[in-house]
Design a protein around this nucleic acid. Sequence first.
DNA 1: ACGCAAAAAATCGTATACAATTTGGCATCT
DNA 2: AGATGCCAAATTGTATACGATTTTTTGCGT
Lengths: 237, 237
Amino acid sequence: MNPTSSALPTPDEPTETGTRQIRDAIRDAIVERRLSPGTKLSESDVGNLFNVSRTLARAALQALSYEGLVSVEKNRGAFVAYPSPDEARQIFAARRLIEPGILREAAARITQSQIQHLRQLLLEESRLIGERGQTARRAEIKASGDFHLTLAAISGNTIMQRFMEELVARSSLVIALYGQSTISSCGHSEHGDIVSAIENKDLDRACHLMLHHIAHIEADLDLRERKGQGLKEAFDL
Amino acid sequence: MNPTSSALPTPDEPTETGTRQIRDAIRDAIVERRLSPGTKLSESDVGNLFNVSRTLARAALQALSYEGLVSVEKNRGAFVAYPSPDEARQIFAARRLIEPGILREAAARITQSQIQHLRQLLLEESRLIGERGQTARRAEIKASGDFHLTLAAISGNTIMQRFMEELVARSSLVIALYGQSTISSCGHSEHGDIVSAIENKDLDRACHLMLHHIAHIEADLDLRERKGQGLKEAFDL
DNA sequence: ACGCAAAAAATCGTATACAATTTGGCATCT
DNA sequence: AGATGCCAAATTGTATACGATTTTTTGCGT
């Protein structure tokens, strides 16, 4: 129906205003890697930080827990999720499973203006890659994920869109934990190739490129068990 | 690794005990259609019903809201979700998109004992179809969904498993709202055919059957806008 | 000094309390 | 009689309070 401005921000449904803000703020912080995996998120601290009571802080943390971005342990508190290698594999397996499908849907209903929107995203991404500094790096991470999210939005299925939001966010955590190469985001040129394939209506090629792209990200991971943040193991190698 | 007993009940992670029980109880009630779409779920009532404070009742309702089974409206309260025709289409589109993938994964790693487990589920399903009465009908609905959920469990991907749980639950709501035929569950024989195809290692056929199966369920729906439970439109036709 | 036990502090789990908003009813006016 | 405005009841939004559990600190004995 409408271009790309699908139901991304959710009109007004999610009940209270405060919880939503807090949830989104923390989620962004996690996705942009300003919060490291394993970081403790005390209810009181979160509440104080956002000037709300523990009630709302707790609600936000529980929501994030449902998305798999924070893990809450009974009577111990909430922590930024620390995905295990197995979880990481499942996250990427899930992406391999659903992204081709989303791509086909998106390609089927994509409009010219949406293609232009995608190209603009890519341009912005390139610009950020060129820049230096933490801020640019964080924006680059977000932009890289936004490409996949925009594709999901174009597909027109808000449910798949939400699934992808979760998977992209969790992928960011995985890359933060297990990523090897310094390049924080995934191969940028691959995004462009996918858009080109879509534009040429070559669906099979687009899907193939997408799978290759995901495999490429995954190949950059060193999926070995890592215990708590910094202990003996850190000095053994 | 292990047969079918994957991480279905989630060991102990989901924080508090009470909230989880309430959430599961209400979810079951919705899936088994003891709660109709649109039914108001007052926080006080829910709390009294389960002998807990509004705090826990509210937490449970918010969790269900995140799963799409209840919709909470600011300052108005929580209601059993009333999926729109468009939402219904998206739910089934999502299922068509991911179930073949799950099926392939499941077929790839299925063991003999898991096949037997599936066959046993089918047997139980047939038995329930034969029986009469509300209780049997409800059990039949649950069994029908359990087939798809078990397949997801066999696939070994807990993330996709959770997605499927949400989709199956929401499908139940959609069928309750828009289903036409009296037969509450989807074609039982189709489940059996899928298992056979898996057993014969005929993946393409299994996927084809699965898509056909989902289409079959969807074809039984009358996806036309229905406004609130009973108003003028109810008398116009 | 080191290890262990008990107390103190911090943090979570749940209930209750109060403020804000909505809903329904009653009185009043046209 | 019907419509309108206002007040009371009910319900949600948020904060605070209290009990339970975990973690840290402290102090003692060996």
